[in-house]
Design a protein around this nucleic acid. Structure first.
Length: 258
DNA sequence: ATGTCGCCTACGAGGCGA
């Protein structure tokens, strides 16, 4: 089974590129983030044409997460237990389902905006709650293979950004964010891509020629428990998907499991 | 060069979020 995660930055704008990639990539389950639409706006037919079923959660023009899969999604869960709200508003940032016995989450972690912003506190709380709920799940079902997949909006290592000196005082690299990220490792999840691809970016800002200059960030991850990680046979970061006409600012990250 | 993109409202262009 080949799975992938991709922040598509609007599925309505990107539908052609996403279905083109699915057709070429032999992907069984794609976790998408930032679909940026409500259910009545989602281009279901384009995916159905290529044999993919859509499971989605979108509330408005912001955020939004989904799966496109050749495999039936079972036990679908919107959000997660204890998921924080922002100013009492629930956001469309988490969707979980089981595919052939593998439990996968599509996650769009809050950006944080700046270290002084209320969204930064929200980001840290959101990550802490996700780790707590995941830890509880793993205690009850350690044998179930699971993976948290998505745009974490955190660069865990200094080498995950093009120049760490440019990130002084910025989000994505702060100690609290990195600590929140490492909490997933403490509860038994590991990044299944990094051991096989030690250095690569998954995101390049549209601004300031970041991609031509290869000034990117590694912020999209697949974190699996042991039951998942031991089945991984191959991974990739689809850098070519940042090229050409109308790309997302993120590229797909994939894992093949036996 | 603040070298971009995509959403919204509401019909032109500005505001917001990333």
């Amino acid at each position: 089974m080949r799975i992938a995660t991709w922040n598509v930055n609007s599925i309505r704008t990107r539908v052609g590129r996403v279905t083109d990639w699915l057709e070429r990539s032999n992907c069984d389950v794609l976790a998408m983030q930032e679909i940026k639409c409500k259910p009545d706006q989602f281009p279901f037919e384009a995916f159905e044409k290529f044999g993919y079923k859509i499971t989605m959660h979108g509330l408005n023009q912001w955020n939004g997460v989904a799966f496109a899969s050749k495999i039936e999604a079972e036990d679908v869960e919107i959000g997660f237990s204890g998921m924080p709200t922002f100013k009492d508003v629930e956001e469309a940032r988490a969707l979980t389902a089981t595919f052939d016995g593998v439990r996968l989450s599509s996650l769009y972690i809050p950006n944080g905006r700046s270290l002084e912003d209320a969204h930064y506190t929200y980001k840290l709380e959101w990550l802490e709650a996700l780790a707590a709920t995941t830890a509880e799940f793993l205690e009850h079902e350690p044998e179930t293979p699971i993976a948290l997949m998505g745009d974490f909006n955190i660069a865990p290592l200094d080498t995950d950004v093009w120049n760490i000196d440019d990130f002084a005082g910025a989000t994505h690299v702060s100690a609290p964010e990195r600590q929140a990220f490492s909490a997933f490792e403490q509860i038994g999840l590991t990044d299944v891509v990094r051991p096989r691809i030690p250095q690569a970016y998954t995101y390049w800002d549209y601004q300031q020629l970041r991609f031509p200059k290869n000034e990117g960030m590694r912020i999209d991850f697949i974190l699996g428990n042991d039951s998942f990680a031991e089945r991984v046979t191959e991974v990739s970061i689809e850098r070519d998907e940042r090229k050409g006409e109308g790309p997302s600012d993120h590229v797909p990250v994939t894992a093949t499991i036996s």
